[in-house]
């Protein structure tokens, strides 16, 4: 199950790498899509060696690949998200376990990035998603929350990351890391729906 989820997430990112890079060209250094693609390809290459391991172990190993292979700040940020989730997930997680693990993982991302909600970063997607999950919303609702939250970053002025150098000119563009996060969440929600 975890293998399938991670494979789907990796393909979702890889297939939209050009678009993610285009978003980053508008307000960043223009490498987000390429970097995430390289990281996700490394994750896919690693997956066969992880078959049969508990979901938490698989997530930790996937996160480590992202940390090592992405080559930008996104590596430690998305890698931390996966590794902290992996650390916090029990072997056979229920919804409460997942909500608790996501809360810890999002806190880990905030600490790693020295950031908070409202700065036009991936936290602007992850925090509403975490709240929707712990608030008992369905996977379809959580997917909608994630995509809407990514859209909502268009109006935010960046105060963290490379986009913050642009000041007011960062307004009017979607944050690439937020869109990557929304793609990941949406993919997981779709999978959860079909497997439920």
């Amino acid at each position: 199950m975890m293998d399938e989820l991670i494979t789907a997430v990796a393909h979702a990112i890889i297939s939209r790498a050009e678009h993610l890079t285009a978003l980053d060209q508008a307000i960043g250094d223009g490498d987000h899509g390429h970097n995430m693609k390289r990281g996700m390809e490394a994750v896919l290459a690693e997956l066969p060696t992880l078959s049969g391991k508990p979901p938490g172990e698989v997530l930790k190993a996937a996160g480590m690949q992202l940390v090592m292979k992405v080559g930008g700040a996104s590596g430690p940020l998305f890698g931390t998200l996966a590794m902290e989730l992996g650390k916090a997930l029990p072997p056979d997680p229920d919804r409460n376990d997942l909500a608790n693990a996501l809360a810890l993982a999002v806190a880990g991302v905030a600490a790693r990035g020295k950031s908070e909600r409202g700065q036009k970063t991936m936290l602007d997607v992850l925090i509403p998603v975490e709240q929707a999950l712990s608030g008992g919303q369905s996977s379809a609702q959580i997917k909608a929350v994630a995509l809407a939250a990514a859209e909502a970053t268009i109006a935010i002025k960046a105060t963290r990351g490379r986009a913050s150098f642009l000041g007011d000119r960062s307004i009017g563009h979607m944050d690439p890391g937020s869109y990557s996060s929304a793609l990941i969440i949406a993919t997981i929600c779709d999978k959860m729906d079909t497997s439920a």
Partner: peptide
């Protein structure tokens, strides 16, 4: 440089 030698950095 990143793991591909392009602009970026590498943890390793």
């Amino acid at each position: 440089g990143n793991p591909d030698g392009k602009l970026g950095t590498s943890v390793e």
